[in-house]
């Protein structure tokens, strides 16, 4: 019983909703702050400890911001694409679009087929737009290559 009550308190502490903001002491040095909800009640946004910030800072210091050069998409190592990560799928999709825009239909078709194969085990209902576009590219590239030949 005590454990259940304790867990419940822990859960509540992640985003406390209170009626009397003056009852709560904030820790502004951690970025903890009180904000208003649409209902007029007050909510505390959790702070960030020095250790948590330190690890974020270190990651950003090591890797830096995302650099998008004019050729970054075409230089992608597609073998490292994880189909379960949305941003990875988006990179591969952007690459197919870039190749299609450049009218490099042979390479676009090859990349599109690779993407369709990579995404085949994913839930297609959840990524319908992505699959629709890849199917469109596959069909359109094939037709354009045939026309040229």
């Amino acid at each position: 019983m005590m454990e259940t009550v304790h867990q419940s308190l822990v859960n509540q502490l992640s985003e406390i909703t209170i009626n009397k903001p003056t009852d709560i002491k904030l820790q502004p040095q951690n970025g903890e702050i009180m904000v208003k909800k649409g209902s007029g009640r007050t909510k505390i946004r959790k702070g960030q400890t020095d250790a948590e910030y330190g690890s974020q800072k270190q990651q950003f210091h090591m890797e830096g911001p995302m650099l998008n050069t004019k050729t970054w998409l075409e230089e992608l190592d597609v073998s490292k694409i994880d189909p379960n990560i949305k941003s990875d799928r988006a990179k591969l999709e952007s690459l197919t679009e870039r190749l299609y825009f450049k009218r490099d239909y042979v390479k676009c078709l090859e990349t599109t087929k690779f993407a369709l194969e990579l995404f085949k085990d994913l839930n297609h209902k959840k990524i319908k737009n992505e699959i629709d576009e890849l199917e469109y590219l596959k069909s359109s590239c094939s037709k354009k290559i045939e026309t040229v030949q």
Partner: peptide, 12 residues
Amino acid sequence: VRNEFARLSDFT
């Protein structure tokens, strides 16, 4: 400052 994914999506 808290989220690597936010950094990736917000700032290129």
